[in-house]
Amino acid sequence: MTSQPSEPITVRTAKVAEIDALAAAMDRSRNYVVNQAIEQYLAANGWQIERIREGLADSREGRTVPADDVLADIAAKHGWSR
C-alpha cells in the first residue's frame, strides 16, 4: 500500500477529547480512530449516494412500484393489518 500525501484538518476540541477517550479504551492511536471513522463515514455515505442514483435512474425509466403496494406487501409478509 502506497502512502498518500496528508493534509491537516481541524477538529473541535470537545471532539478531540472524545476521540482520545475512545482511542485509549481501544488501545489505539487518535489517528487510527479518526481514520477508521472517516473510512466508515465515506463507505456508508458512498453506498447511500449510489442507491439514490440507482433509484433516480429506475424512476426515470419507469421502474417503480406505488408506495401503497410496497406497504401492503410488507404488511402481508408480517401478518399486519393495514
Rank of each mutant, 00 (worst) to 15 (best):
M1R: 06
P5C: 00
E7C: 07
T10S: 10
V11T: 09
R12F: 01
K15C: 02
K15P: 00
V16Q: 13
A17S: 13
E18S: 12
I19C: 06
I19M: 05
A21L: 09
A23W: 04
A23N: 05
A23C: 09
A24C: 02
M26S: 09
R28N: 04
R28V: 03
R30P: 00
R30D: 03
N31K: 09
Y32I: 06
V33K: 05
V33W: 07
V33N: 04
N35K: 12
Q36C: 03
A37M: 13
E39K: 15
E39G: 09
Q40K: 11
Y41L: 11
Y41K: 10
L42N: 04
A43T: 11
A43W: 03
A43L: 12
A44P: 01
A44E: 14
A44L: 11
W47Q: 15
W47D: 14
Q48H: 13
I49N: 07
R51C: 04
I52H: 04
R53F: 06
R53Y: 08
G55E: 02
L56C: 08
D58A: 13
D58G: 03
S59I: 06
S59L: 08
R60S: 05
R60T: 03
E61P: 00
E61L: 12
G62N: 02
G62S: 03
A67F: 05
D68H: 10
V70A: 03
V70E: 03
L71V: 07
L71P: 00
D73K: 11
D73G: 07
D73T: 07
D73F: 05
D73Y: 03
I74R: 03
I74W: 01
I74S: 01
A75P: 00
A75H: 10
A76D: 15
A76R: 15
A76G: 07
G79F: 06
S81D: 10
